[in-house]
């Protein structure tokens, strides 16, 4: 299982791939004809994916690059306008910058918090006591609730007058904010929602913890290391590939954050654009205003941002991600 975590998701990893098909073992007696046959059959088997890749990935990928230089409202054919979309985005569209700001702010707050909560829960639940499975299930449960349902539950518990959260705050005589209606609190509401679902990543960390060899801890105990020291020197370094994986995926997912923002603002990104996430703004431009050329340009900027951030995280991994035994 751990192999998969260590796998840098989007770099080719030759050793992992197709080393020993059954055909390889026949080896010596293989002639040109059977080699050709293997190639033919191999390509036949992967053809569903290959066709899907060409039609649903490669073609749209190139097409959206082209569309980003056009004015396109889907009804009329696209009209080439050079760099106009990009110019407008960078110099004349405050909403583009607003949406980028919202997304980055959320990424900076939610991604680390979810990471820390997930790891903390995993460390806590990685003990062998009676009934621990029940607790694991409890913490995991929120993450299987469909996003649409989670959001509708949170809209209700954050309701200003009669919602659960403000009722609980009222016990302590605190007048709770109006949450989803107050631009200062919307982002935090979404962060709470993300933390509520952090149990999903806990399972991944638990699996990672199970793979840490026990003798490391035994040796550390003999050396008189404290529990905190052991966590710091053994657990976290050994877990770092999993943390790394979750960090990368967390950042990528934030830039595609859509459903929750769409639901709590009814597609508007309000109040005061405080939930105008990048993906939501792109959706608005493309489908509400049918400005699909601009939407494509936004998609490409998104793509470049994600590639850049991922590259930076990948570069940083030498310093803190610990592979190997």
């Amino acid at each position: 299982m751990v192999q998969i975590f260590q796998l840098p998701m989007f770099l080719p990893i030759p050793p992992l791939v197709c080393r020993h098909g059954p055909a390889g073992k026949i080896g010596v007696r293989r002639n040109m004809k059977s080699k050709f046959r293997d190639n033919l059959i191999g390509y036949l088997f992967i053809s569903p994916w290959l066709i899907g890749f060409l039609v649903f990935t490669l073609y749209p990928f190139c097409q959206s690059f082209y569309l980003s230089f056009t004015r396109y409202n889907i009804i009329q054919p696209p009209k080439f306008i050079g760099l106009a979309n990009y110019k407008m985005m960078f110099f004349d569209d405050p909403l583009f910058w607003a949406s980028l700001g919202v997304t980055i702010k959320y990424a900076l707050v939610a991604v680390p918090l979810v990471l820390v909560v997930g790891i903390g829960l995993a460390l806590l639940l990685n003990v062998n006591i009676k009934g621990i499975a029940i607790f694991r299930t409890i913490f995991y449960l929120p993450s299987i609730v469909p996003m649409v349902a989670t959001t509708s539950i949170f809209i209700w518990i954050l309701s200003p007058q009669v919602g659960l959260v403000n009722q609980i705050l009222a016990i302590f005589h605190i007048q709770g904010p109006i949450w989803l209606k107050d631009p200062h609190w919307t982002l935090w509401s979404l962060v709470f929602m993300a933390i509520w679902g952090a149990g999903g990543s806990m399972v991944i960390y638990l699996a990672g913890l199970k793979d840490i060899p026990q003798y490391l801890y035994e040796a550390a105990t003999l050396d008189g290391a404290s529990a905190i020291k052991k966590t710091q020197m053994i657990t976290l370094p050994m877990l770092s590939p999993v943390i790394f994986f979750n960090l990368v995926m967390g950042v990528i997912n934030t830039f595609q954050y859509f459903t929750q923002a769409f639901m709590i603002s009814d597609g508007t990104g309000g109040p005061s654009n405080s939930t105008l996430f990048y993906a939501l703004y792109m959706f608005q431009r493309s489908w509400k205003y049918l400005d699909m050329g601009y939407g494509s340009a936004m998609a490409w900027v998104l793509f470049i941002i994600i590639v850049a951030i991922t590259t930076v995280i990948f570069r940083s991994q030498k310093r803190w991600v610990h592979y190997g035994r």
Binding site: I13, F53, T57, Y59, I252, Q256, A299, L302, I306
Partner: peptide, 19 residues
């Protein structure tokens, strides 16, 4: 092809959505 397929997993859906 296998590596390419893995790479597509990280491609954000937004990029291909409009076409």
């Amino acid at each position: 092809w296998f590596a390419l397929m893995l790479a597509t997993m990280a491609l954000p859906g937004q990029v291909t959505m409009i076409p």
